[in-house]
């Protein structure tokens, strides 16, 4: 019994320490996307917290969704989210993903994101600064995985 407890603790701690990111653009203007990339570049270096940008959703723990979720990306958002192995977490990066602004009112926007899939952390800003994105990832991971 005790052993199982410690195994769970090790699992939780390692999950917090190694969030692998998958980036999904759902109609973003590139602003948030380049800030996500900038957060991995030397000045902000998210890898020191264990964050690695991976290319396959099967490898990832956290999805970073940018953009207001366009009509054509909607099924793909759901599909990519389902492809992630459990446990998983989701961060809405940018005001678009969080609320749809300034595209609210457009006929081809299905967002905001939290009406579609569960969101663990919202990072607001247009675009948010890299520090904020890193903070958002850490918040989401702590909330979901511990």
């Amino acid at each position: 019994m005790r052993q199982e407890g410690s195994a769970v603790r090790i699992g939780a701690r390692s999950r917090i320490k190694s969030p692998w990111l998958f980036h999904l653009n759902t109609g973003s203007c590139n602003g948030c996307d380049i800030e996500i990339v900038a957060s991995l570049a030397p000045r902000y270096d998210a890898e020191r917290l264990g964050c690695v940008l991976v290319g396959s959703p099967r490898h990832a723990d956290v999805i970073l969704v940018t953009g207001p979720v366009t009509r054509q990306m909607l099924p793909r958002v759901i599909r990519v989210y389902e492809q992630l192995p459990e446990p998983k977490s989701l961060v809405a990066v940018g005001t678009c993903a969080a609320s749809g602004a300034p595209f609210i009112g457009s006929g081809v926007i299905e967002g905001p994101l939290d009406g579609i899939i569960p969101v663990d952390a919202y990072v607001l800003g247009c675009p948010p600064r890299p520090e904020a994105i890193v903070r958002g990832i850490v918040t989401a991971v702590r909330r979901r995985f511990s």
Partner: peptide, 13 residues
Amino acid sequence: GHVHRGIEALAET
């Protein structure tokens, strides 16, 4: 077309 957001139409409003 995956990230079409309808900006041109939206701008008219």
